[in-house]
């Protein structure tokens, strides 16, 4: 192999030299540059720790919520090195609409123990932002959705709360139908509810006072 026969001492010396060289390279160059670990300060003196500081963020994984369906098979997305955009496996989380969202505002007066319902007609997957507040007292609310084509028995509840004075939020319709609020005045005086809905509702329907 070489002019000298490999002896035990010579090969062990080679092993030792390699280990030593590797240790020196690791501690002074590789670890400072790759991880910012710099026990000797040589990495900093050579400007290598700056590599770590300015390096693009390491690959990250983002967990995706299955907001409107279609993500069942792909709940995580690798974010790559931060230079290239990552195509989302389910681009339906962004919905193109031909028109701007519209805003509807309603004011409803409710006497003591009176109740009413206001609902947004929504197609499946359409989104609304809502905000409502009560002046003069507190109400019980049942925020729910219902598909009229399936009869009156089918409905799902998003939120039920008692003795509150307002809520803000958003909703993506899980199915086509009417999605809205049942309000009951639980105060001992009349109240005024102001509701604003912005989004892609077909329209807001005021059912008036219920018996």
């Amino acid at each position: 192999m070489s002019e000298q026969m490999p002896t035990r001492a010579r090969t062990l010396k080679g092993l030792g030299l390699s280990l030593l060289a590797a240790a020196v390279l690791l501690v002074t160059l590789v670890l400072p540059a790759e991880y910012g670990i710099d026990p000797t300060g040589i990495g900093k003196a050579l400007g290598l720790t700056a590599l770590k500081a300015t390096a693009p963020a390491p690959a990250q994984t983002v967990v995706m919520q299955d907001v409107i369906g279609g993500n069942e098979g792909l709940t995580t997305v690798q974010l790559g090195d931060g230079r290239d955009p990552v195509p989302l496996p389910n681009p339906a989380v962004n919905q193109d609409e031909p028109q701007a969202p519209h805003t509807e505002t309603l004011k409803i007066q409710l006497g003591v123990d009176e109740k009413t319902e206001v609902k947004a007609k929504l197609s499946k997957g359409k989104m609304i932002l809502y905000s409502w507040s009560v002046e003069g007292g507190k109400v019980y609310v049942d925020f729910h959705g219902h598909d009229p084509s399936l009869g009156d028995k089918f409905w799902v509840r998003y939120e039920e709360a008692d003795g509150i004075t307002g809520r803000n939020g958003s909703l993506v319709a899980p199915f086509k139908g009417e999605h809205g609020w049942y309000w009951l005045n639980v105060s001992d005086k009349p109240v005024m509810i102001t509701l604003t809905v912005t989004g892609y509702q077909d329209k807001l329907v005021d059912y008036g006072r219920l018996q």
Binding site: A21, A22, L25, L26, V30
Partner: peptide, 10 residues
């Protein structure tokens, strides 16, 4: 060998 040990340590 040195390169191998550096990779290993890294």
């Amino acid at each position: 060998m040195t390169a191998g040990f550096v990779l290993c340590g890294y």
